[in-house]
């Protein structure tokens, strides 16, 4: 393991931490434009974080240690997830430690901790949010796993860098199963990141909120970490999507000098810009589903991913 590899690994993680709020800010800006509102500046999420870090924490009297630990664990798991996902380079030593299944495990860990923390104070909204989030999670997680399964079968590996390398080796052979997987993945991405058809990141309407309900009791630095972690989660999901479906531009093993890395960063930023705009467009065009429809939506994502698997096996690439 060379020093350069470590630099690459840490550089990628730091980049993720740094630009994740920017990505959320960009989506919010696009959404505002699409809805003919005056857009907040691109740096709004950073200002928000700064403000939150400066405030004093107001902690509920009966909060337990679990509640106070959770923001750090959330942030930590998301940072680790960023270390596994090849967003700019595939030569990631940490990806050997935890493959894509472990990545899903990390997401699940974050979700379980946040849900437990939401139940900790014992308020009506907290436990409602926890229940809803776990419901979404238990349907979205297998869908995501099935999407990844498609990629595993194509590349013969469950490590994301190998998946990327396998697909960049044959750039024109887009497997038809990936079509299904891509649609399913998009649906999961929207659901898992509390975006429009399932949850509205901009709402504080008590009865429809999910993510917001769980973070309700958090304040100041805790809330800042929770929010930052959810920005990172969205960023991570976007990068998983790029790695699976649009792997071009990621610096592969052996071809990852400084120039290639610079290029990879530029390509990543370009992809994020387009993806952010596309997400904003999708969110603006669709209406929020009733919570009772959410299982149906996610079941569809799950079935689509399974169908992708099936198509792959049947068409026998």
């Amino acid at each position: 393991m060379t020093a350069l590899t470590m630099v690459r690994q840490f550089g990628e993680v730091l980049l993720a931490i740094a630009i994740a709020p920017l990505f959320s800010g960009w989506i919010a800006q696009c959404r505002a434009w699409l809805q003919s509102r005056a857009a907040p500046p691109l740096t709004q999420p950073y200002r928000m974080l700064r403000k939150l870090f400066q405030k004093d924490v107001a902690l509920a009297t009966n909060a337990s240690a679990l509640f106070r630990m959770t923001p750090y664990i959330l942030f930590g798991t998301m940072v680790l997830a960023a270390a596994i996902i090849p967003s700019i380079a595939t030569d990631l030593p940490f990806a050997r430690v935890a493959d894509a299944i472990a990545l899903i495990g990390l997401f699940a860990t974050a979700r379980v901790f946040l849900s437990l923390a939401a139940m900790d104070i014992g308020t009506a909204f907290g436990s409602m949010g926890a229940r809803r989030d776990m419901m979404i999670g238990f349907l979205a997680e297998p869908a995501l796993l099935m999407v990844l399964f498609n990629a595993f079968l194509l590349s013969g590996s469950t490590a994301l860098p190998n998946v990327v390398e396998a697909s960049t080796a044959h750039p024109f052979l887009m497997d038809p199963s990936l079509l299904f997987a891509a649609v399913a993945f998009l649906m999961v991405l929207l659901a898992e990141n509390a975006r429009i058809p399932i949850d509205n990141p901009a709402t504080h309407l008590e009865l429809t909120m999910i993510h917001e309900a769980m973070a309700l009791e958090y304040s100041a630095r805790h809330l800042a970490l929770v929010e930052w972690a959810s920005d990172l989660k969205l960023f991570n999901y976007a990068c998983i999507g790029f790695a699976l479906f649009l792997p071009w531009g990621i610096a592969t093993h052996g071809a990852d000098g400084a120039l290639a890395l610079g290029l990879a960063v530029a390509v990543l930023l370009a992809k994020l810009t387009v993806a952010g705009a596309a997400l904003a467009l999708i969110e603006s065009l669709s209406a929020k589903l009733r919570i009772f429809r959410a299982p149906e939506y996610l079941a569809m994502a799950f079935l689509l991913a399974v169908l992708g698997l099936l198509v792959h096996l049947l068409l026998g690439a």
């Binding site: 337990s64 979700r111 419901m135």
Partner: peptide
């Protein structure tokens, strides 16, 4: 594998319920 994944995710749901209702809250 799809059923397995669903089961594993449901197990997490069950355990959050178990732990949350017994040990957390008021």
């Amino acid at each position: 594998a799809a059923v397995l994944a669903l089961t594993a995710a449901l197990a997490a749901y069950v355990m959050v319920k178990f732990y949350g209702v017994i040990f957390l809250g008021q």
